[in-house]
């Protein structure tokens, strides 16, 4: 055997970018944003260095849970076209490596957050990782059509983490933000699942459209939208909201409700005619919807810090 043949038969050497991909950088960006908002709107200011270090720990914790999720789901990831290119199914990273990175970074991020911020924030980060990996990925994702609702809870914790880093305690405001993301997740993902139905069916994941059909899924999207609206409006009447937030939220919720009604009314012929255009638009709008709600909270916090509040609303919560 010569050097040349050895080179040809060796396995692919994972590059650094492959390991970064394992941490789901797109999810990490959302986590960083929502955690930063949770921290920024809290009534206690955090030193910028501590804030940066804490958000980094939260992002690494989220990435670690993403790696553990990819390790567990490697069998179904290889089946679905959306996930076939991920580092493990594409053969770029070995499953054992993903497990080691996931476990190592989980412990590391929790430990460092306890040192940088406070033990309560670290405990919440540990619980979030546990919830996403054990309860959602390993436990319920493949068992129940309500998997998205449970998975959404794990994705909903970052603003709470940011708040607890700043204050060291719990409060109603971050819990409303958790509820906002929690109730936003089902309509968002079920809209996606409507046109990705074949993928989930092939992988045997009991997504709602697979198990209960398209009509029921459309009803659930509408139902969760109705539940989401009051929760999205509620922060207006807390110390972190205000009239600007309320104004923008009313418009966003009106558009969301119209979209949900439109999805509810659509028949199979409609979606075949435009190839799920309304579902895709609804899905795209839900991203903007959540982003703008959090941006408005940042705007309110900034105005408050300069004593430039526009109108005052009663604080009910």
């Amino acid at each position: 055997m010569s050097d040349a043949t050895f080179t040809e038969t060796r396995q692919y050497e994972a590059q650094f970018s492959d390991y970064v991909e394992l941490l789901k950088p797109r999810v990490m960006r959302l986590v960083v944003f929502t955690a930063a908002v949770g921290m920024f709107v809290a009534p206690v200011s955090v030193h910028p260095v501590v804030a940066f270090a804490s958000i980094l720990c939260i992002a690494i914790g989220a990435g670690a849970s993403g790696a553990l999720n990819m390790w567990w789901d490697r069998d179904i990831d290889a089946i679905m076209t959306r996930t076939q290119g991920r580092p493990i199914p594409s053969g770029r990273v070995q499953p054992g490596e993903a497990l080691a990175i996931g476990l190592g970074l989980s412990g590391f991020s929790v430990m460092m957050l306890a040192l940088f911020a406070n033990p309560l924030a670290a405990a919440w980060l540990a619980f979030t990782i546990f919830f996403y990996v054990v309860i959602y990925s390993i436990g319920l994702k493949r068992l129940t059509p309500q998997n998205i609702v449970i998975g959404g809870a794990a994705g909903a914790f970052p603003p709470l983490l940011g708040w607890v880093v700043a204050t060291g305690s719990m409060s109603v405001e971050p819990l409303l933000l958790v509820a906002l993301i929690l109730l936003w997740t089902p309509p968002h993902f079920w809209a996606l699942a409507l046109w990705r139905n074949d993928d989930y069916q092939a992988a045997g994941i009991p997504m709602l459209p697979v198990m209960r059909g398209e009509r029921v899924t459309r009803r659930y999207i509408f139902g969760y939208t109705l539940l989401l609206i009051p929760v999205a409006l509620a922060p207006s009447f807390t110390q972190i909201g205000g009239s600007l937030y309320l104004a923008v939220s009313v418009v966003l919720n009106a558009v969301l409700l119209l979209g949900a009604v439109k999805l509810l009314k659509r028949q199979e012929a409609d979606r075949d005619a435009d190839k799920f255009l309304a579902e895709k638009r609804f899905f795209g709008f839900t991203i903007l919807y959540l982003f703008l709600h959090f941006v408005m909270l940042l705007v309110e916090a900034t105005l408050r810090s300069f004593d430039l509040m526009v109108g005052t609303l009663p604080v009910w919560f």
């Binding site: 050497e13 260095v49 040192l115």
Partner: peptide, 25 residues
């Protein structure tokens, strides 16, 4: 593995800087 090792080295260096900065604060 050069690229991979350089990245790990930079991360470790960054980690030391962060721990130092937080300690000072």
């Amino acid at each position: 593995r050069k690229g991979r090792n350089k990245a790990v080295g930079l991360i470790l260096g960054g980690f030391v800087v962060i721990v130092f900065a937080v300690s000072i604060v």
